[in-house]
Structure formats: structure tokens, C-alpha cells
Amino acid sequence: MVTLSLDKVNVKLGQRPVVRDVSARLEAGTLVGVIGPNGAGKSSLIRAILALVRSEGHIALDDRDTARIGRAALARAMAYLPQGQTLHWPVSVERLVGLGRLPHLGPMSRISEADTKAIERAMTRADVIALRTRAATELSGGERARVLLARALAVEAPVLIADEPLASLDPGHQIDVMNLLVAEARAGALVIAVLHDLTMAARYCDRLILLDRGALIADGRPGEVLTQDHLRDVYGVEAIIKTETGRPAVTTLWRSPPRV
């Protein structure tokens, strides 16, 4: 069981601060949604967690500073599903999912029986077995998103971090992906997902972190974070929030009038 703790994390891009003093303690077994408007620093925060961008403050995995964990060990601890779907070569689906095993391989070693099984498991769970011999660049957007998710699952890391995993997916596939992320969390992983769809975030996430202009505005259960005040202050929108199902469902109405 893994714990990720952030202590006063700051990220600057050039001179511009994009993440300011974010502190949080994230436990295994939870699906954490990171929400906030465009430019709120969501991607920068998770890139800082993954040590892909330089940050100030402390980020620790089980009380071990991530800056002191080597790149390969970090890759085994945290799987990352980047934003977007750019693939640079038309490799087969099976081969692409197999890339998820790279952190487990030595420089000259061959792929092992255990790796092969992990690849099969990941492909089964993301439901891409039927696509295994297809070129990943020739798939539809929804298929490719699932294949890339399978690639991240193949790492079998205790932490899974997904940047906008629902982008360009139809409602059915959005639900499939969210169910998969929930299943990962229930199986004991810490899953962090950057999300834009507030209703999906509220329905599936155990906890939401709301960012605005780099700062943490709210952190808690979806019902606590998704309030009309927060939506007005952070997104600048008026919304109806229904809570009949126990989870908030957000319907945005219009832009809030500018505050005086």
C-alpha cells in the first residue's frame, strides 16, 4: 500500500509560477480526481509528481523523496498515461502495450514469462485483445485511448496517473475508462486522474482536488468540493447541482456575472 505526500509543492514554467504551495496526502485504494479550469496547473502538478518537471517543496512516495528515487525505480512505482494520443510509429497494439514492461527490464534482458502475462492481463482488462495485431496508429480515437490505457496498466505500478483519460471518448467509452480506473483503485492502487467532466469526476472519484491558478482551492469528497460557490469562484459559471443519487450531478447554466 502506497502513500503519496505532497508538501508545499511549487512549479515554475520559466518565471511563471503554475503550481503554488500545494500540499496533500494521497492514500492507496482511492481514485483521486484533479479538477480545475484550463491553465489551473493540473497537468503541471502531476508532471511534478512524476518528476517530469522540476519542482520545489517535497514529494514523497511512502516517505521517500521522489527526487532521490532513480528514474527506473520511479517508473516501476508510477505508471503515467500522458495527455493526447500522439504515437510516433505505427507499431502493433501488442507491442505498444508491451512498452509498459520497459521499467521492469534490464538493459540487455529479454522479456520474461511474467512480463508476457502482465501484457495479457492489461490487454484483457482494457478490452483490447481483439486489436492486438492492428497498427496502433490505425485505430479509432476510442480504441487508441483504450490501448494507451492498457499500456499504462501493463506497468502494474502501485500508482497510476492519467492526464485527461476521457478526452475524445464517447459517453460509453468514458464510463468504461472510469470503471477501469475505479477497479484499479479497488484493487489497492492509488489512481490520480485529471478530469474535465465534473459529473463523471463526482460519480466515480473518491476524492476531488480543485485547483485554480496553481493553488489548491478545495480537497475532499465530491459533495464537499463541487459546490455552487466553488464553481462560481473557480470556473466562473452558474450551475445546478443535484445530489439525489448521493453523488453530485453538475449541470452548468451560464457564465457568472463579473464580480464587482
Binding site: A75, V91, L99, P103
Partner: peptide
């Protein structure tokens, strides 16, 4: 020496680094 780093770059720079490639 490390042909796998090239494979990892299929996923772009961030993707490759997150897979442990320096």
C-alpha cells in the same frame, strides 16, 4: 546499447521518461 529507449520514444518524451528512460 539501449534500443528500448527508442521504442519508448514512440510515446513521446514525457511517455519515455515516465517509463524510466533518461
Amino acid at each position: 546499447w539501449d534500443a528500448r529507449a527508442l521504442d519508448a520514444l514512440t510515446l513521446g518524451e514525457d511517455g519515455a521518461r515516465a517509463l524510466g528512460v533518461s
